[in-house]
Amino acid sequence: MISMLSLVAATLAATAQASPVVIRDHRCVQASIARAHQSITNYDAYSTLPGAKLEEKIPGFGSITLLNMIKSQARFTTQTTSATDGAVWVVLQPVNLTNAKNYPKFLLHCTSAYDSEKHFTHKCNLDKDKLHYGLDDFTSQLDVTADALNCPAGQTYLDYTLTLDGNSRDVDAIKRAVTKPLGAIIGPIVGALFDEEAFFRTYYKNFYEGWAGSL
């Protein structure tokens, strides 16, 4: 209960500002570069990764699913072992909503290319001309290097940056849909979990960590 109250307090504090969410992460993984490339471009498997579902654990009561990736589909125009170019369609289900209208959904244009045998870059950008809900912008870049300087021998270095902009109106609508059945007193407390900045930041941090951990 205390952890939930702290999270509520933290998210309430974060509600005061709405700025793009930026996530930066550097880490070494045991996987080879080829394995990292195969995994990051395996978009159809994204929804089955451990980080695809973000849960809030409430000790003694179980856990609430905050956001769950229910669809990740890809259509490639280029797909080789060293380069890819394609569209990726992502749909997320917030909590237990059964009205698809309130599901964050967006189409990404993703590319990957080996600059050398020891380095590849993977980039994704939101296709703003296609249907999107919940997000106004999404840009990610992952640099993967066989880096003897930053990592122990045999490990691979991941350098990840994600910038995204939540759409406040959409997030407010999701929040209302989730909290309405909870009533006027408890609803706003649970609603504090759905601050767009904290909401998407936590989700994508969890997602990335889940992906990196699966390598």
Binding site: I64, T65, N68, I70, K71, Q73, A74, R75, A87, V88, W89, V91, Q93, V95, N96, L97, T98, N99, A100, Y103, K105, L107, L131, V178, L182, V190
Partner: peptide, 12 residues
């Protein structure tokens, strides 16, 4: 807030 099966959504 218990989990519910998702609604049908458009495909890519």
């Amino acid at each position: 807030l218990s989990e519910q099966p998702p609604a049908s959504t458009p495909d890519i």
